[in-house]
């Protein structure tokens, strides 16, 4: 067990190192640098000004020196400093991470919950109108461009009906505490989480439905049916329990993606998350922040995968390879 764990952590570390190096090189391929961006924003510049900025950001050193110093500081769990924002990268990321995690996890729970539920219903009414309806709706949510759907939701629920706040993480300087604050954040969360969740739902609906139909054909289900057990009970106790395994495996893979995958939703709903931080850092060539976001999200995905694998091994000792 310990051996397995060590091997896995070792491999993860190698992947993480490669990600750091490759992204570092990739980002430096982009035209322009932070000094140019800041000069552009200032509306004026002279060579001395730009040279000063480059020296301050450490960009005047050869690329391999910059790479070495970055990799070695990451190895010491130091993600560096954002010269543009005058703050340590880790602080910036930690400020934004909770918002993204909250959004992604809610969307994930919504999509998985609704997806499995709708998929089960569809499977049990195979070929009937309910099945067609569910499959069609799920597909429509998937095929509609996400940002278009998001904009429409804001127009309807926020501007026209005034039911839900249209942007942000919470009411600014409301002074809410405790339960009041939780409810306030929840109200802000509804639209972004559902928009993202309904988009992701389609996959789970389809998979659950297919998987249930597959399991239905197995002998033990037939036996249960022959024994005269109630269909609902069969569905719940025998079919769903077995059909859910591939769904959970897929969900494990998807969950990792959620960390940085909400850029679009964060943009439309002004959600102060890590996806937005990444996008802005990219536009501003804030190298350390951009790399930091990649390193942190990759590390989280790797950790997540590791935990999933461990859980599988504990649950089912037959699984040897990953």
């Amino acid at each position: 067990m310990l051996g397995f764990l060590l091997t896995r952590v070792g491999k993860a570390a190698v992947v993480l190192l490669c990600i750091t190096v490759l992204n570092f090189l990739l980002i430096h391929l982009a035209p322009g640098d932070p000094a140019m961006v800041m000069a552009g924003e200032a509306g004026e510049a002279d060579p001395e000004f730009i040279a000063q900025l480059r020296a301050q950001f450490g960009l005047d050193r050869p690329l391999y020196v910059q790479l070495w110093s970055y990799v070695s500081s990451v190895a010491q769990l130091d993600l560096g400093y954002s010269y543009r924002q005058n703050l340590p990268v880790l602080d910036l990321i930690l400020q934004r991470l909770p918002a993204t995690l909250l959004l992604s996890l809610s969307a994930f729970v919504i999509s998985l919950g609704l997806g499995v539920l709708a998929g089960t219903i569809a499977a049990s009414r195979q070929g009937k109108p309910a099945d067609t309806l569910i499959s069609t709706i799920a597909l429509l949510f998937y095929a509609t461009p996400l940002f278009w759907f998001a904009l429409m939701a804001v127009l309807l629920f926020s501007v026209k009906l005034d039911w839900l706040p249209g942007y942000g993480f919470e009411t600014i300087r409301s002074g809410y505490t405790g339960m009041e604050r939780v409810l306030d954040i929840a109200a802000h969360l509804v639209m972004p989480a559902f928009t993202l969740g309904l988009f992701l739902m389609a996959v789970y609906v389809r998979m659950t439905r297919a998987s249930m139909l597959e399991v239905n054909k197995h002998d033990y289900v037939r036996t249960a049916r022959a024994k005269g057990l109630r269909p609902a009970l069969i569905q719940r106790r025998h079919v769903l329990r077995n059909a859910i395994l591939p769904v959970v495996t897929l969900a494990g893979l998807q969950a990792g993606q959620l960390v940085g995958g909400a850029v679009l939703i964060e943009t439309v709903f002004a959600w102060p998350g890590i996806g937005r931080l990444m996008f802005e850092a990219l536009a501003q060539r804030d190298y350390n922040v951009l790399l930091g976001v990649f390193v942190v999200s990759a590390a989280m995905v790797l950790m997540f995968n590791l935990v999933t694998d461990l859980a599988y091994r504990l649950v089912d000792p037959r699984i040897r390879t990953t």
Partner: peptide, 15 residues
């Protein structure tokens, strides 16, 4: 306030 999308900004004024 910081709102990255232009359409959302106009909406925020209207609400």
């Amino acid at each position: 306030h910081i709102i990255p999308d232009a359409a959302s900004r106009a909406n925020a004024y209207e609400t």
